[in-house]
Amino acid sequence: MTTSRQAASKTPVIAPRFDNLCAFVERLKARSVLASEEQRAVLALPVQIVDVPAKQDFVPLGDETSHCCFIASGLVARVGQVKNGSRQITAFHIPGDMADLHSAVRPVGIGGLTALCDTRILRVSHLAVRLVAQRYPAVAEAFWRDCILDAAILMQWAVNVGRKDGRSRIAHILCEMAIRYGRGTMDDALHEFAFPVVQEQLADAAALTSVHVNRCLRSLRESNIATVRNGIVTIFDWDALVKAGEFDPSYLIADTAPDRQRRLIAE
């Protein structure tokens, strides 16, 4: 068992890092048809680089923002908080995501954003986002779909934390991240990837205590299904992980089939 784990880790796992909005355009193109002029218009959005240290809120809860945040590197959580200070992570945002695209039209009242590790953000002003959407209806349509993907993920998370046991919740999150860090399809789900979370953050995402998360991870490890160690996820048995997480990827990929990508609004 130990041998196969070591063998899987031979090639170094490199965390994604982007310098521009190319990855965001790719994310949009997975669900929407964009002409090259429209793609160029999104790529040409002016950005401002902001480096956020680990554990810092960069969109504080309740604050109104004037820009959207593209994740260039690192890892971001959307969070809500209750009176005693404990937090619930309601989404993970990974490099390539525009974490709060919706804020261009709703700049307040949808939780805060916090960096879980050292993170680079490319800020895009709401005004610029609205202008490109106004000029190119296909881009507006693609933005709309992108926001709905985030809503679909959130809905699935509610089911995950509301109706599954601890081990299943953790397995579900690992399946989702394997697909999102990969090329967004079930077949290309990564079997080893950097996911720089600690147990405490997984606990906040799965609505468990960190002791419980540790116990669930031990169970997945001892069943030779998956490990999470030092921010690296290694999946030994994808089918078993999917089963353990009761994972159905429709919420992530249903709209990526070519016949689903046709323009419905834009000419």
Binding site: E200, N214, R218
Partner: peptide, 16 residues
């Protein structure tokens, strides 16, 4: 580190 001792031992290597 919070080490759990129940039916099996769950060692908390990471801690917080």
């Amino acid at each position: 580190h919070l080490h759990l001792y129940n039916s099996a031992e769950t060692h908390d290597a990471e801690g917080r």
